[in-house]
Design a binder for these strands. Structure first.
Lengths: 340, 340
DNA sequence: GATCGTCTATGAATCGTTTCAACGATTGGG
DNA sequence: CCCAATCGTTGAAACGATTCATAGACGATC
C-alpha cells in the first residue's frame, strides 16, 4: 500500500486539494461537515503527510541539529534533554549527531544538516577555531556554540570554567590542603586549561600560603586515564604526594578514586578528590564524589532559546554570549571524616 | 545571503539546470571544462543542495530513525554506534530519538519519522504489543524491532535473555552458592522476566541441589533502586541472606555493590554479584563487576542490515527474527578471593 | 558527402504540499 | 430587491532538484 497523497484524499472526499490542506492546517476555516468527510478519507486511505513537500514549500524544516562530541557522555545527553524540552514546545524535532571528536565527521554532519535546511545548528565543535561555521551562519542557518565561548559574531552558551576551577581550589585550600594536584587532559582543550587556571587563581587569591600544584597531564578525559594518574600519584614519595586532587572531569576522578582505593589510600583522609561535571555516577561512587556542577539542562535550554530567537526575529536579533556560573557540590570525597 | 538555488548556479555557469544536476550526480557524463565552470559557480554562490527537494523527487530520504528508551543509557548509545557504522557505509544518516519510556513521545517520534519518509525505523518500543507499528510498516516504512522479539510479520533483533539468566545462574551455582537472590525491575518487562526465568532454569538443570531463589523486586532498573535492594538484603537475618545475587542490569548491580560495601559486607566473599549488560562502568567499579554481556554493536549492525535488506529488495525480502547469544564475563565480583 | 555513433547539453515534466487571489453562495441591512 | 459582507471552497502557481527523451556537434567510416 503505497502512501496516498493529498490529491487522492481530495478526490475521495470530493473536495479540492486546497481544502484538504486547510483541514490539516487551518481546520477552523473549514465547514464541519467537510472537515469530517476529509478526515474520514484520510483515515480510510492511511494518508501520511509528506514532510519533504511541506518543507520544500516552507523553505525550512522544523528540525534543530545538535552536534555533540560524544553521545556516550552523560554530560551531553543531559544537555540534550534541556534542548529537547524547549524544542518540543515549539514543535521542533532535535536531531542528535555524534562527531566522536572527529572534525571530519563533524563537518559531514553540519553539511547534511545545512542541506536539510534545519532551523539551526547547536554544536560543540571539536576544534577551537571554525571559520566554516560562520559561513554556514552567513548562508542562513543560525549556529549556536554550546559549551564554548564565541566572539560577538556568533551566539554561544558556556560555563565559566575558570570560576569552576577556582571554586574547587578554594574549597580544598579551606580544608587545609597545601599540596594540591591537578589531573587533566591536554591543555589545548580550552575547558581543561581554564579549569586549571581557576585552580591557580584560587591559590593566588590566598597568597602567601605557600600552596603548591602538581600537574598530572593525561591525553584523554576517561576513567582509564584516571587510573593511570593514580599510579603516578602512588609512585610519588609520600612527602611530595598531593593531599588533594582536582580532576578536569568526573570520569578521571572516578578512575582515580578506584585505583587509589585499590592501593589502600583512603579518600578523603589520605587524598581528597574533587571532580567536574557532577554526572550521575559521581554521587553513586563508592565514596560519593565532590564535583563542580554545570547547569547542563539550563545550558541546553539557553542554547535553543538563542537559536529560536534568531530564527523568529532574524532582523532584530543580536548575537549574545551567555555564560553560566558553575556550582560546587561538596560530598564525602573532599571532607575529612574524623569520626572514622 | 539567502541560499542560492540550482537555477542561479546554472545561469552563472551559463549552462542548463540539468547540467548542474549532472555535475552533482553524474560528474563523469559532463565535459571537464563545463564541470569546472559549474563547480566554480557553486563555490562563488555558496550553493548548498536542498535536501528537501531531492528527497521529494526521490520519494525517500536517506535517513534511518532509531527510537530508543533512554539516550542516557550507555547500552543504547552502544547499540546506536553499531547502527551508525553500517549506516555510514550506505551514506545514510541516523536520527536518534528518545522516547524516555513514554509511549506518547514514542508515537510522536514515529509519526514524525514516517512523515519524513525515512528509509526505515529501528525501535525499542516502550510497550509490548504495538499494532500501530505494523500499520506503519504496511504503509511502506520498514520497521525493525530492536532488543525485542517479534512474530514473523516483522523483523527483529534480540538477545536470548533466558540464556543470559541461565549463564549467570549456572556460574553462581558452580561457585557453590545455594541461596541465590534475584534483583529485578517489574516482571512486566519481558527482558526482566526472561532473565529471571533463566536463573530458575539453571537451578532446574542441576536439580536436586536444593538451591533457592529470593526475589527482590524493584520498580525501576536504576542505581538508586540497587541501593534500596541492598538495604533489603542487609535487613535479612544472616542465615536467610542470599550468598549471591543476580541483578537484571548493571545499574542495579552497581547500586547494590556500593551499598553492601558501605554496610561492610564484602563482595564477593560475603555476597557475590553478577550484573547484566556489561556497560563500561561495570569493569570500572570498585570491585569489577561480573556481567552478562550483550553484543551491543552487533545488535545495531544486524538491525540496520535487516532494514536495508528490506529497503533494497522490497519484493523478495523475508522478515527475520535474529537472536543473539549473550556471554558471561566473569570478574572479581563473583569469584571468591581466598588470597585476601 | 551521406550515414552512423559518440559525447554533451538541454528543457520540460515531475515529486506533494502550501498559499492565495478569486469565486460562488448565503445572509443581513437598507 | 439590491449591495455588501461573510463564509467556504477552488485551482493554479509556487518551492528546488532530478530525470529522461531528444537535440546538436563532431568524427569516423564507407
Amino acid at each position: 500500500m503505497a502512501a496516498a497523497n493529498i490529491r487522492e484524499v481530495a478526490r475521495r472526499a470530493r473536495v479540492s486539494v486546497g481544502t484538504v490542506s486547510n483541514v490539516l492546517n487551518r481546520p477552523e476555516s473549514v465547514a464541519e461537515a467537510t472537515r469530517q468527510r476529509v478526515m474520514a478519507a484520510i483515515d480510510e486511505l492511511g494518508f501520511v503527510r509528506n514532510e519533504a513537500a511541506r518543507h520544500l514549500r516552507a523553505g525550512r524544516s522544523r528540525t534543530v541539529g545538535f552536534v555533540v562530541l560524544d553521545v556516550a557522555n552523560p554530560y551531553f545527553t543531559d544537555v540534550a534533554r534541556g534542548v529537547e524540552g524547549l524544542a518540543d514546545e515549539h514543535d521542533a524535532m532535535v536531531a542528535l549527531c555524534n562527531s566522536g571528536d572527529d572534525p571530519e565527521r563533524e563537518r559531514r554532519h553540519v553539511k547534511q544538516l545545512e542541506e536539510q535546511r534545519v532551523l539551526g545548528i547547536l554544536i560543540t565543535p571539536v576544534e577551537n577555531d571554525n571559520p566554516y561555521l560562520e559561513q554556514v551562519a552567513a548562508r542562513g542557518t543560525p549556529v549556536v556554540l554550546v559549551d564554548r565561548g564565541a566572539g560577538h559574531n556568533q551566539c554561544s552558551v558556556a560555563v565559566d570554567d575558570v570560576l569552576g576551577g577556582r571554586l574547587a581550589g578554594t574549597h580544598l585550600l579551606e580544608q587545609g590542603h597545601r599540596r594540591l594536584g591537578f589531573v587533566g587532559g591536554p591543555l589545548s582543550i580550552k575547558q581543561v586549561a581554564d579549569r586549571k587556571a581557576g585552580l591557580h587563581a584560587a591559590i593566588n587569591d590566598l597568597n602567601g600560603t605557600g600552596a603548591d600544584v602538581v600537574v598530572i597531564s593525561r591525553p584523554y578525559l576517561t576513567v582509564d586515564e584516571g587510573r593511570r594518574a593514580a599510579e603516578d600519584i602512588v609512585g610519588m614519595p609520600p612527602g611530595e604526594r598531593p593531599t588533594a586532587v582536582f580532576c578536569a572531569n568526573d570520569l578521571l576522578a572516578l578512575g582515580l578514586l578506584q585505583e587509589l582505593t585499590r592501593h589502600r589510600l583512603h579518600v578523603p583522609d589520605d587524598i581528597a578528590i574533587v571532580g567536574y561535571d557532577d554526572i550521575g555516577f559521581a554521587s553513586a561512587a563508592t565514596v560519593p564524589l565532590s564535583s563542580v556542577r554545570q547547569p547542563r539542562e539550563q545550558l541546553g535550554h539557553a542554547a535553543i532559546e538563542l537559536l529560536l530567537d534568531e530564527v523568529e526575529h532574524r532582523s532584530r536579533h543580536r548575537h549574545r554570549q551567555v555564560v553560566f556560573q558553575p556550582e560546587l557540590v561538596v560530598r564525602e570525597s573532599s571532607q575529612h571524616t574524623r569520626a572514622r
